[in-house]
Computed example of a mutant assay.
Amino acid sequence: MKQHEEPFLTRPLSVVLDFVRFGAALLVAVGHAVQLGLYHGWFPFGVRMQHYCVIVFFVLSGLVISTSVLGGRSSLPRYAVARLSRILPVAIPSLVFSTLAAYLLAGPSPVRMDNSPEDALAVTRQLLAPLTFISAWPGVAGPVWNPPYWSLCYEVWYYAIFALAFFLRGWSRVVAVAMGCVAAGGAILLLMPVWLFGVALTHAPVARRLPLGAAPPVALGALLMALALFRVDHDVLNPLLKAWWPGDAEWSQWALSDVFMGIVMTLALVALRPVASRWEGPILRCGEAARTLAGFSFTLYLFHWPLIQLLRSWGLEAGRSLPVFAALIALIVLTCAGISILTERQSPRLRRWMEARFLETPVGMAPA
């Protein structure tokens, strides 16, 4: 991208995507609450909703990460510091909390824990795989009471492979990227095209030049594709992948549907960009609210499952009452907002410490 060209991720679009990020995290929490039995009333969506929200995260992640390194001031060490300081303050506490919730804080009502160890040594071993972000590998047990952690394991490998491809040169890049892909494994790589859709938006001039008048048709096309996807994913695309993929796809078992959804999200972003620019003034005035909500969306995503399980273990369920369900969801959201003070709100402080400790010339940049 030429230096004088405006990036795809403009200021108003960034504000809108902060709302999208929080909305997607909230929908994941709501969907999982229904899936886990916190609410037994009518609900218009199945498990596909929360899964496709994760695909939204992947596209946004690729877009934000690629945008963050295009300014020319980044380097591999700075990139590593930015990623680690963003991930670790939420990932480690979420693993500790979910384990404590399952074994020490749970109430008298039994809550089923699949693949959960019983003795302390086994629990410790099960924590090590998520801490090293390999728990999404086929056959490796995931964290206790925190299945959503799988997507973070995927993203960490995407971060690493992208960094090797972007910052290295020559044969060292080829060898390093190849080794990174082999280490990640085929199941994780199945969903990497979705993440790369976000990266592609930062490099495709046509994505930045869509006129405002063309935005509605593109958005309508994305909507029609999404509706079509819900008609063919379960009966056509998912069985097709299962027949083609020889091994255990684990969390990538919907990969063909996910790639389709990634295209839908990419088109939606292309259509949203000129609309956000047209309404730049009103949107920017909502920037503080957007940053506040997005500022604990990562915590909401990684803490909502153990919180839901805790509520159920203490017998707190909504039954078929929608108002009670809304109140319980609000309790979870507010709890995560409070927890975020100790988790992702500490990311800037950790980044400054890591830059001062490990980099020669720290820069005051906010984590991407």
Rank of each mutant, 00 (worst) to 15 (best):
A29W: 01
A327K: 08
F197R: 03
S252F: 00
R320G: 13
A101R: 10
A268G: 11
L328A: 07
A219E: 13
M192A: 10
H203N: 05
Y79V: 05
M179Y: 01
G139V: 10
G338F: 14
W245Y: 15
W314H: 15
A327N: 04
I339N: 06
I332E: 05
R351P: 03
L256R: 00
P77D: 12
A228D: 08
D119E: 15
H304Y: 08
M113I: 09
A249L: 01
G198S: 09
Y103S: 05
A226F: 14
P246H: 08
V96M: 12
H304L: 07
T124L: 14
E355Y: 02
H304M: 08
V324R: 14
D114E: 13
A226T: 03
A163S: 08
S172P: 06
L168R: 06
L121K: 14
L60M: 12
A326H: 03
A25C: 11
S94F: 01
L27H: 02
M354D: 02
A276I: 02
R73S: 14
A271T: 07
C53A: 12
L342S: 01
S94R: 05
D119L: 05
G62Y: 11
Y149M: 10
S347M: 11
E317I: 12
C153G: 14
E155D: 02
A249M: 08
Y52E: 01
P147Y: 11
L224H: 04
V140G: 09
V59G: 07
L100Q: 03
F303P: 03
L38C: 08
Y79I: 06
A243S: 13
A80I: 05
A294R: 02
V28G: 04
A102I: 12
P138Y: 04
G281W: 10
L27T: 02
C153Q: 04
F167R: 04
R351Q: 15
L210H: 07
C53F: 12
T99N: 09
A219S: 13
M49H: 11
I329V: 15
Y149L: 08
A318P: 07
G107D: 14
V20W: 01
A82L: 04
C53R: 06
G31L: 02
T202R: 01
V264F: 02
A228G: 15
T343H: 07
F298L: 15
S151W: 04
H51Y: 08
V20G: 02
A289R: 11
T343W: 04
A122I: 13
P117V: 04
Y39I: 12
P367T: 13
V199D: 08
V123H: 09
R209L: 14
I161C: 01
W245S: 01
L241T: 03
P110I: 00
H51T: 05
W145N: 01
G23L: 13
F97N: 03
A215F: 13
V194P: 08
G364N: 11
R345C: 06
T292F: 15
E344V: 09
L105S: 01
P7S: 13
G287A: 14
W195Y: 15
I87V: 15
L190N: 05
T335L: 15
S66V: 00
L63K: 01
